[in-house]
Simulated scan of single mutants.
Amino acid sequence: MQLELRETDRQPGQSMTTKLKRVQTRIDYVDEVYKTLLDAISDGSIAPGTRLTQEEIAEQMEVSRSPVLQALRLLKKDGLVQDAPGRGVLVTPLTIESISNLYLIRGALDNLAAKMAAARGAAIDPVYVSRGREISKGKNIKAMIDADMAFHNAIYEASGNPLIAQSAQVYWVHLRRAMGAVLQSSKQRESIWLEHEAIAQAISAGDVVKAGELSDLHTTHARENLIERLSQYLAQ
Rank of each mutant, 00 (worst) to 15 (best):
S42W: 00
I105R: 07
M144C: 11
L3Y: 07
A47Q: 11
M144S: 03
E134G: 02
H218N: 13
E59M: 05
I124C: 00
A222C: 08
E224M: 12
T17H: 00
G88T: 00
G138D: 10
I164C: 07
A178H: 12
E59H: 07
A154P: 00
I192W: 01
Q14A: 14
D125V: 00
I141P: 01
E190D: 15
S64G: 02
G88C: 04
L74I: 01
R131Q: 08
V208M: 12
R176V: 12
T36Q: 15
I227Y: 01
L80Q: 12
V81I: 12
R87M: 03
A178D: 10
W172M: 13
A113G: 05
A114T: 00
L90R: 07
A108V: 04
R6S: 07
R176T: 14
L214G: 02
G44M: 06
G79M: 11
R106V: 02
L94G: 00
K187Q: 12
S215R: 02
G132I: 14
V89R: 08
L175W: 01
W172I: 15
I227R: 04
K77R: 14
I41A: 11
E7N: 02
R177P: 08
S204K: 04
L104V: 03
R26E: 10
S215K: 03
D28I: 12
V23E: 05
A119R: 01
I145E: 05
A168F: 13
G86W: 05
I96Q: 15
V81K: 04
Q14W: 02
T220A: 15
E62Q: 12
Y34M: 06
I192Y: 03
A211R: 03
G44K: 02
L90C: 10
I41W: 06
R229Y: 12
L72N: 10
L94F: 01
E62S: 09
R133P: 00
L183I: 15
I105A: 04
Q169F: 13
L75S: 08
R223K: 13
S66N: 13
R229A: 09
L72Y: 04
S215C: 07
P93D: 12
Q169L: 14
P162E: 06
R22S: 06
A143H: 06
L217F: 15
S215P: 01
E62K: 11
K210M: 11
K210N: 02
S100A: 08
A205P: 02
G121Q: 06
N140W: 03
L104N: 15
T18M: 03
A40H: 04
Q11H: 08
N101C: 07
H152C: 07
Q82P: 05
I105W: 06
V182Q: 14
Q236G: 08
A114V: 00
E56F: 11
A114W: 01
D39T: 09
E4K: 08
P12K: 02
L214T: 10
I141N: 05
I105T: 11
L214D: 05
H152T: 12
S98L: 13
S191K: 15
D216I: 15
R87D: 06
I57V: 14
A84F: 09
D39F: 09
I145V: 07
R26S: 10
S66G: 11
M149K: 04
E213F: 12
V129E: 01
S215T: 13
N161Q: 14
